[in-house]
C-alpha cells in the first residue's frame, strides 16, 4: 500500500470484510430465487428453511410450463402451434425489448448528432424541452397514454409499450453527449469532400459514436425488459403478457406456491442478468455518460 492510499491497514481490512458481507446479502435474494425454484413443495413450506435444497426437483418448472398455453403467434386468422404460456411471455418480452432497443438507438443517434453538430433554429429550446421532460416522473404520462393508445387501436398490444419507450428522451440526451465529443472538423472535412448529409452521418459520425450507441442499446434493453408499470397498464390478455407481468399475475392467483413463483422469477431474471453480465462494460459507461452535466 502506498502512503497515498492513506487509511490504516486495519480500516482497510475492516471495510473489505463489511463489503464482502454486504455483497453476500445483495446476492442472497437471487440465490433464494434460483434455489427456491428447484425445491420441493415440502421444503418450501417448511418453517425451517433449507439453505441448500436437500432434494432437487423440476416440478416447479413443469407446473409453470403446463399452466397456461398460448399460440406461438397470431397474425389475422393464422394461428401458430400451441406453446406454454410462459414461453410465449418470454418471446413477447424479447420482441418488446429488441424493438425498443433498435428504434431507440436509430432515432436517438440521429437526433443526438443533429443536436450536437447542426446549427438549426430552435435547437436550444428543443434541447431544454428534452431535459425538462427527463426530470419529470415518467409514470405521470401513463394514464393519458392509455387513452391515446386505445384511440390508436394499440391497447393490449405490445407496441403500446414499445412506442413510449422509444419516445423517452434519455437516449437523445445520451447521444448528444457522445456526439459532442467528436471533433466538428471531422464532420466538416467530410462535407468539403463532397459527401452528402446522410453519408456524413453513416460513414463518419456513426462509427465514432458506436460505443455510445452500444451503451444506449444495453441500457434500453434492460430498462424496457423491467418496465413493469408500463407493461401492467397496457397489456391485459393472457397471451400478450410479458414475463414480468405473467409472473405477477401468477403470483396473484397462486400466492402460496412459492416454488412455482420462484421458477417464474428465475425465468424472468436469468436471461436479463446474463445479458447484463455480457455487456456490463457498456452499461457502466452509459450510466456515467448520462450523468455528465445531468
Amino acid at each position: 500500500m502506498s502512503k497515498r492510499n492513506g487509511s490504516s491497514r486495519g480500516y482497510q481490512i475492516f471495510s473489505l470484510v463489511v463489503l464482502i458481507v454486504l455483497a453476500l446479502l445483495f446476492l442472497f435474494p437471487l440465490y433464494w430465487i434460483v434455489t427456491g425454484a428447484l425445491k420441493t413443495p415440502a421444503a418450501i413450506n417448511s418453517p425451517t428453511p433449507q439453505w441448500w435444497p436437500e432434494e432437487f426437483t423440476l416440478r416447479n418448472f413443469q407446473v409453470l410450463f403446463s399452466k397456461r398455453s398460448a399460440p406461438l403467434f397470431q397474425i389475422g386468422s393464422l394461428t401458430g402451434p400451441t406453446i406454454p404460456g410462459a414461453i410465449r411471455w418470454l418471446i413477447n418480452t424479447v420482441f418488446m425489448a429488441v424493438m425498443a432497443m433498435l428504434l431507440t438507438c436509430a432515432t436517438a443517434a440521429m437526433a443526438g448528432y443533429a443536436l450536437a453538430k447542426k446549427r438549426f433554429t430552435g435547437r436550444v429550446i428543443l434541447f431544454s424541452l428534452i431535459v425538462a421532460a427527463m426530470a419529470l416522473p415518467k409514470q405521470v404520462i401513463l394514464i393519458p397514454l392509455i387513452r391515446e393508445m386505445s384511440s390508436l387501436g394499440l391497447y393490449d398490444n405490445i407496441w403500446a409499450v414499445i412506442l413510449p419507450t422509444v419516445g423517452w428522451p434519455f437516449g437523445v440526451f445520451l447521444m448528444k453527449q457522445f456526439a459532442e465529443g467528436i471533433p466538428t472538423e471531422m464532420v466538416e472535412a467530410c462535407r468539403i469532400d463532397g459527401a452528402n448529409e446522410w453519408r456524413t452521418f453513416t460513414d463518419v459520425m456513426f462509427p465514432m459514436i458506436k460505443p455510445g450507441v452500444g451503451a444506449l442499446a444495453i441500457f434500453t434493453f434492460i430498462n424496457s425488459w423491467n418496465d413493469y408499470f408500463m407493461q401492467l397498464i397496457m397489456l391485459t390478455s393472457s397471451s400478450n403478457l410479458t414475463i414480468s407481468l405473467g409472473i405477477a399475475t401468477m403470483q396473484a392467483e397462486n400466492s402460496t406456491d412459492y416454488g412455482l413463483i420462484m421458477a417464474g422469477a428465475s425465468l424472468a431474471a436469468i436471461p436479463i442478468i446474463v445479458v447484463f453480465l455480457i455487456f456490463q462494460k457498456y452499461f457502466t459507461k452509459g450510466i456515467t455518460m448520462g450523468a455528465v452535466k445531468g
Partner: peptide
C-alpha cells in the same frame, strides 16, 4: 455488478422473493 444486480433482476422477481422472505410462516 453485485450491487447493481437487484436493479437488473427486475422489480417483479425481486419483489416476489422478498415477499417469500417476509412471509409469516415460511
Amino acid at each position: 455488478v453485485v450491487f447493481y444486480l437487484p436493479v437488473v433482476t427486475g422489480s417483479v422477481a425481486v419483489t416476489v422473493v422478498w415477499k417469500w422472505m417476509y412471509n409469516n410462516y415460511y
